[in-house]
């Protein structure tokens, strides 16, 4: 009896320790973003500054190109996540349900694309995109991000489709649905958790991507937020307060996004589909 209680306490304590560990950097981000510049170096290491300010936030919004970066990032991340999710749902469904010639070759090819360090690909991609006028453009970024995320997202979606019994769409087809209608009305609603996970995964990946954004984009008009953050680093100093304020604001869409989809992430929709 006491053993069980002790186990529970240990379990909760371990979870708590993990949460503290995981959230501490975020807390520090917040703390620095509200610390006035004059206290940043003068107070030593403290958990919370003696007085706080929103000056950094005001400055970033009013005087920097941050709103542009933010808008660009939003466009790129939303377009990429939607494009990848649509493509990978269809591809994942095909891999899960159909037998076709070249299936294993395609799977192998997709796996191989995941093996190269991205840095190797920067130069050839730049070479390909620049004659097409896709460097320094958000469209170019969306295309590159989509290409890189589709293979993994496809495998992810395939595993979600694999978890949905084939009987369901067969029942729908016998009920009078075409395969596509069965996919849309029966299978997709049941894959919402998978779709939400894929959307979330791709959104955050595109939102925080730095390497290609840095290489393919020059100048502020098409820069995304991670590139924009670097503008707070000048030759002589780093403006930590403003950088952190921008960082906190950059977190907001990701947080909102996950709040929106978390309902689907935790839902076990398929329970009760077949015998149970």
């Amino acid at each position: 009896m006491t053993g069980r209680i002790l186990m529970t306490i240990a379990h909760r304590a371990a979870i708590l320790a993990y949460i503290v560990f995981a959230l501490f950097p975020l807390f520090w981000l917040l703390k620095v973003s509200v610390t006035p510049n004059d206290l940043l170096y003068s107070e030593g290491v403290r958990l919370w500054p003696s007085h706080t300010t929103f000056e950094h936030y005001r400055f970033v919004i009013e005087n920097s190109a941050f709103p542009t970066f933010f808008k660009n990032s939003l466009i790129v991340a939303c377009s990429t996540s939607v494009a990848v999710t649509v493509l990978s749902s269809l591809a994942g469904y095909a891999l899960s349900r159909f037998r076709f010639r070249g299936k294993y070759a395609i799977v192998a090819l997709m796996l191989i694309t995941q093996m190269f360090p991205l840095v190797m690909l920067v130069a050839p991609i730049f070479k390909m995109l620049s004659p097409l006028g896709l460097t320094n453009s958000l469209t170019g970024l969306v295309i590159v991000y989509t290409a890189f995320n589709v293979p993994f997202a496809t495998f992810l979606m395939q595993s979600f489709f694999d978890g949905i019994p084939k009987d369901l769409e067969e029942a729908a087809m016998i009920d009078g649905a075409s395969r596509f209608i069965a996919f849309r009305q029966i299978i997709l609603p049941l894959t919402l958790p998978g779709i939400a996970a894929t959307l979330g995964f791709v959104f955050t990946a595109a939102w925080s991507e730095l390497l290609f954004a840095l290489m393919l984009i020059s100048g502020n008009t098409s820069a995304t937020f991670p590139v924009g953050l670097l503008t707070f680093v000048s030759k002589f100093s780093v403006d930590f307060g403003q950088m952190m304020a921008a960082g906190v604001m950059a977190l907001i869409p990701a947080c909102l996004f996950f709040l929106l989809i978390q309902r689907y992430l935790v839902q076990g929709l398929t329970a009760g589909a077949v015998k149970g």
């Binding site: 019994p165 009987d167 369901l168 067969e170 029942a171 729908a172 087809m173 016998i174 009920d175 009078g176 649905a177 075409s178 029966i186 609603p189 049941l190 929709l269 398929t270 329970a271 009760g272 589909a273 077949v274 015998k275």
Partner: peptide, 28 residues
């Protein structure tokens, strides 16, 4: 195609649509 044969089938697993209630399952 199955949808054009106008036959009904009861599966061993029942294959009920989990996101629909009983009435919607029956009326699909």
């Amino acid at each position: 195609k199955p949808k054009d044969r106008d036959i009904a089938m009861v599966f061993q697993s029942y294959a009920l649509y989990p996101h629909m209630n009983v009435a919607d399952n029956m009326s699909y």
